[in-house]
Design a protein around this nucleic acid. Structure first.
Length: 476
RNA sequence: GCGGCCAUCGUUCAAUGGCAGGACAAUGGUUUGUGGUACCAUGAAUCAGGGUUCGAUUCCCUGUGGUCGCCCCA
């Protein structure tokens, strides 16, 4: 690689101010041209991903791993089977299930036309694809309830912010085939279990019932009648919602809208009797499970397919910020509306990015990952070659070994060993390679001994064990 | 989708309409056979494109990205 600094140092010396300026101009031009010539690949487009897309770097992976583990445990405990779905579906699937007039469909969906002319979209949520798969694969013949777990990326074309990306990862738990509210309670309990396993405290559940589609339509009429004549008191958005999605006016954050909603007829009063009972029983079950929750009559959720139970999970961090970690609800009519048999269902999604963010904000401690406690250093060509064999020998015996085969000097290798905080350094030099011995250095005490290579594994184990005793005593 | 703020080495913080510096990290070294400290050295950046200018990293415009608020959500 050509560097501008290497070529130009002479130009810096012994020049009058005027010449300096001239030189600098030349230098800059030259440098720019060289840069272009040397690194034409450095286009801005290639230096960052599109908006809202991000890399999850090694430094963050332990948190993700912990999340994945907690999810896997929950799957086992509650009997969920994993299903993987494509990230791409026909746009109509989403439009029909999520509903026109929702934000997700109107402004957040990533849609495009394929070369073959199909209208497809990246999934903005998991449920639609799940319902599609349920119908397609005839899952209705399986013993009920059917519990499915899915996990993967979702795409929403929103303005990104911290904790909000255009590609985010979600874990979904869904149960098909039974409408007993005990399932609703259990799934909320599952959510609580996952979240608390991740070390998140200060969790709040908000629950509500939005009734059946029929009772909702009834209530919508009542609500519209109430708001129609004073609609100029509503905010711009809500005036539109009055036509497109009146229920969403209920959880508008604008003061003036909230005030109008206050005096409006309450949804709870217009719920059908069955939904009322269902909701009441859910609360009894939650009380039994000792899940604390808040009933939020104004919560309606942004997707059309929900019926009866809806809920959301929030976490409050040390600074009092509230973050939505997940949400879900019943969708008893969805399968049917997509052409399947009448199948009650409930599900919820947990935002994995948000879980990780909250863990980090709350300084959740992670378990130490398994790190090598042995470092293998080599010196000289023969030793370098022979060290491969030792590495493999230790590996076979279940001993994790770090190395720095690419480095030359012993000093720099020892530095690496130290930085990795290993307990034992193995040193294989020219002499040892010829003698078939190896030097074992105890990095804690600094003492070292030479052993024959066939006794290496035993000797290493002995030192590691000895250190464990020391550590245990310290811990007392 | 709307509004505000921001963009300098890998990270972080400087400076400037005229040679873009430091710290941390990285790499190499202080007689290629021994780690933590110290010392030395090296590499490494003005987001992109246009405009104003003799000269722009600095001023202006556009784009891109980040961040915050709204909307909404995970």
């Amino acid at each position: 690689m050509i560097s501008k600094k290497k070529i130009l140092p002479q130009a810096k010396k012994k020049t009058s101010t005027a010449k300096k300026i001239e030189k600098k101009v030349v230098k800059k031009t030259v440098a720019k041209e060289m840069k272009k010539a040397a690194a034409p690949e450095k286009e801005s487009l290639l230096m960052q991903p599109p908006r809202g897309m991000r890399d999850i770097l090694p430094i963050d992976q332990p948190y993700w791993e912990k999340v994945r583990k907690a999810l896997a445990v929950a799957c086992q405990e509650y009997g969920y089977n994993r299903i993987d779905l494509p990230a791409l579906e026909f746009t109509n699937l989403f439009v029909r299930s999520i509903g026109e007039g929702t934000d997700v469909i109107d402004k957040e969906i990533y849609s495009f036309v394929t070369k073959g002319g199909d209208k497809v979209s990246l999934r903005p949520e998991m449920t639609a694809g799940l319902a599609r798969a349920y119908i397609q694969h005839g899952m209705s013949v399986l013993p009920k309830p059917i519990r499915l777990f899915s996990m993967g990326p979702l795409y929403r074309y929103e303005r990104p912010q911290e904790g909000r990306y255009r590609e985010h990862f979600q874990a979904n738990f869904d149960v098909f085939g039974e409408d007993d509210p005990i399932l609703d309670a259990q799934i909320i309990h599952l959510a609580q279990r996952v979240v608390s396993q991740l070390g998140l405290k200060n969790i709040e559940f908000r629950i509500n019932s939005i009734g059946t589609a029929e009772s909702r339509r009834e209530y919508e009429k009542v609500l519209i009648r109430h708001l129609e004549f004073q609609k100029n008191k509503l905010c711009q958005n809500c005036r539109e919602r009055l036509v497109t999605n009146p229920l969403r006016i209920l959880d508008c954050k604008e003061d003036k809208c909230a005030q109008l909603v206050q005096s409006a007829p309450k949804f709870a009063e217009h719920l059908d009797q069955e939904s009322k009972n269902h909701f009441k029983r859910l609360q009894e079950y939650l009380d039994e499970l000792e899940v604390t929750y808040v009933v939020s009559p104004q919560m309606v959720r942004g997707l059309d397919y929900y019926t009866r139970t809806v809920f959301e999970i929030f976490s409050t961090d040390g600074e009092g910020r509230k973050t939505a970690l997940g949400g879900g609800g019943r969708y008893d009519r969805l399968i049917q509306s997509l052409g399947g048999e009448e199948t009650p269902a409930i599900g919820f999604g947990l935002g994995m990015d948000r879980l990780v963010l909250e863990m980090q904000r709350n300084n959740v401690k992670l378990h130490q990952e398994l790190k090598p406690k042995v470092f293998l250093a080599q010196l000289g060509d023969l030793a370098k070659k022979k060290s491969l064999r030792l590495f493999s020998e230790l590996q076979k015996n279940g001993i994790l070994v770090a190395e720095s085969f690419g480095r030359g000097s012993l000093k720099s290798q020892m530095r690496v060993a130290n930085r990795l905080n290993v307990e034992v350094a193995l040193i294989l030099g020219q002499k040892e390679a010829l003698d078939e011995t190896v030097i074992l250095k105890d990095m804690v005490s600094g003492t070292q001994e030479t052993v024959t290579q066939d006794k290496l594994v035993i000797a290493v184990r002995k030192i590691l064990k000895g250190n464990q005793v020391v550590v245990a005593k310290k811990g007392e």
